[in-house]
């Protein structure tokens, strides 16, 4: 909290259309990144952590089951730190778990990419099996972004956010390494693994378009000097992605048309199922301590 930054409150006043979660009534104008921005980062982490943890006990081999467990734990850990930071800045009765468990679907600010099931393009209630290629490709595309985001945020004048970024950067590097390693093995492995990897790339790539369309919160974070201009990361992301895809003998698909808007609170059909499962028990016992 050492950095002196324009108040968040003034940014928030401009964003009536993008409300923070239910429990943010008396957000004090704390210095640093806007709360909406922190929640965007936190929601990303919790949603992907929740998804990846679905593999726990079902991985393709014991060693990889354990490895994916570590990735999930990193994401849940990042989410906790970010929610705690947001809760502290919101004040009042906000807590990490209130933010994770008692906000509705439309209040979540994660990328749509991260909420999709480990599967091809199917509607929510048609999804059953999990496909590891989808898991790996998603972790790769998002991991490639986050090594750049955290690297930039590590230098943020918002000292609290910078500290979380420094810790998360190391984790993100490992996640990227892990996912890229598998992606190359899939792409350049067997015919089946190549087909699965290409199908997953084709399915998920369009969702990355959302990375490059800044939200109000991201713009506010940049304006406050505490965030990172995502568009400035695009060339570096392209380089990482293109290099790995080429090593994996996979083709980068042409992307056009629909741009997802999860970070604006407009999600796919899948987030509702994910949150329903994640939040159900906590919501059945409001006020309980676990």
């Amino acid at each position: 909290m050492s950095a002196i930054q324009p108040s968040v409150a003034q940014d928030r006043s401009k964003q009536a259309s993008a409300p923070v979660g239910g429990s943010a009534p008396n957000a004090v104008g704390s210095v640093g990144a806007p709360i909406e921005y922190i929640l965007h980062l936190a929601d990303n982490a919790v949603v992907l952590g929740q998804r990846n943890a679905e593999w726990c006990g079902h991985g393709p081999i014991l060693e990889e089951d354990i490895a994916m467990g570590n990735v999930s734990l990193d994401y849940i850990g990042q989410a906790r730190l970010l929610y705690q930071l947001a809760a502290t800045r919101m004040g009042g009765d906000a807590t990490e778990d209130k933010l994770a468990y008692f906000r509705d679907e439309t209040q979540f600010r994660n990328y749509t990419l991260l909420e999709l099931p480990h599967n091809g393009p199917l509607v929510g209630y048609a999804v059953s099996d999990r496909d590891y290629a989808t898991t790996v490709v998603r972790n790769f595309l998002y991991g490639a972004l986050m090594v750049l985001v955290w690297d930039a945020l590590e230098k943020s004048p918002d000292a609290d956010l910078a500290a979380i970024a420094a810790k998360s950067l190391k984790e993100a590097r490992y996640h990227l390494h892990h996912a890229a390693d598998w992606l190359v093995r899939f792409g350049d492995g067997t015919d089946e693994s190549h087909q699965r990897a290409q199908a997953a790339v084709d399915h998920l790539f369009p969702y990355t378009e959302e990375f490059w369309t800044p939200s109000v919160a991201e713009d506010a974070a940049v304006a406050a000097g505490a965030g990172v201009d995502v568009c400035s990361l695009r060339a570096a992301w392209d380089a990482i992605v293109n290099e790995t895809l080429s090593e994996a003998t996979l083709v980068r698909p042409q992307v056009r048309g629909y741009v997802p808007e999860g970070k604006h609170g407009r999600h796919s059909e899948h987030l509702g199922y994910l949150l329903g499962e994640m939040q159900g028990l906590a919501r059945a016992h409001p006020g309980a301590t676990w």
């Binding site: 060693e63 990889e64 354990i66 490895a67 467990g69 570590n70 390494h177 892990h178 093995r185």
Partner: peptide, 20 residues
């Protein structure tokens, strides 16, 4: 010990299995 396809992968797996 553990199973891995090759040395590079074995190193990663070892990190996850034996240094948690």
């Amino acid at each position: 010990s553990l199973h891995a396809a090759d040395a590079a992968q074995a190193l990663h797996m070892a990190r996850d299995v034996y240094t948690r």
